Simulated scan of single mutants.
Amino acid sequence: MGDSFERVWSSADAIPGWTTRDQGRALWDAVLRLRPGATVVEIGSHQGRSTVVLGHAARRVGARVVAIDPFLEGPPFGGQRTRAAFEANMAEQGLDDVVELVVGYSTKVRPTWDRPADLLFIDGKHDYWTYTDDLRWSAFLPGEADVLVHDCFSSIGVTSGTVAKVLPGSRLAYRDRVGSLARFTVTRPTRADRLRLVAELPWFLRNVVLKVLLRLRLRPLARLLGHDSPVDPY
C-alpha cells in the first residue's frame, strides 16, 4: 500500500513551506479518493512541501501530479534556487516518475492546456486577478471533483476572489476547511452551501485584524484575540 501519511509528512515537514500537518492530511485524503490514472494539478509548488504529500498519495492510487510554478526571482519566491530545491526534493523522495513539473505562470499555461484533470489544488499567487483566473482551471475537472484552495480565508486577494466569483457562481460548492485550506466541489451550489461560505467570513476578518496588529507590533492586542505568536495566522 505504500508509505503511510505519518511517514510521508515527516519528510514533507522538513521542507520549507506553509502547509500545516492537518492541511497535508486533507490533501492526502483528497488524492486517495481518486481512481487509478487520475491527474492532480497543483498550482504553486515552491520547494515541494505539499507536492511531496500529493505525490506519495498519487503513487498509492496510481495517479499523477502536475506541478505548475513559474519560480519567480526575488523574495519570498527564490527563483532558480527554489526550482533546484523542488527538483532535489522530488528526486530524494523518488517522485520523479509521479510528479511532472511545468515551469510557467498558471494563467499562461491554462489557455493552451488540453488534458483532463481530476483534482485541483490552488496555492499560487494570492492576488485577486491571478486567483480568479486559477479558478478557471476547474473547467478541466469532472463533476463532483474537489478543488482545494490554500489561504482561502487568510488572504485578502483569495477571499475577495472567492466572495466575488464562487459565492454567487453556479459551478463550485463550498464543503469545509482545514484552517485556511478550503475544499469546494464541482457542482451547482445550494443555498446551504452559500450560507456555509458566508459563515466563514467573520473568521477571515479576524485573521486580517491579527495581521494588521502584528505589523503594528501590537502583540498584546493580538493575544486578546487568541493569537500568541509573532507570525501571521494560518
Rank of each mutant, 00 (worst) to 15 (best):
A91G: 14
P233R: 06
R49T: 07
G37T: 06
V198L: 15
L148C: 06
Y234D: 12
V103C: 12
G157V: 06
A88V: 07
D97I: 01
L72R: 14
E100Y: 05
R21I: 07
R115V: 12
F71W: 15
R136A: 09
P230S: 03
P220V: 02
P189H: 08
R219I: 11
V40A: 00
D3E: 11
D134I: 02
T130N: 12
V212E: 13
G79M: 08
G104I: 09
G55V: 07
L120G: 00
I156L: 12
S50Q: 03
A14I: 09
V178Y: 00
L214G: 10
W18P: 03
G179V: 11
G74E: 09
D193Y: 10
Q23E: 15
G2V: 01
H227R: 09
G48C: 09
G74R: 09
A145V: 03
G104C: 08
R196P: 02
G17E: 03
R60Q: 07
L225Y: 06
R223W: 06
R223N: 11
L148Y: 06
E73D: 15
R49D: 07
T51N: 00
Q93K: 05
A58N: 04
S106T: 04
L95M: 02
R33V: 04
K108F: 15
F121H: 13
T39I: 11
A164L: 12
F71G: 07
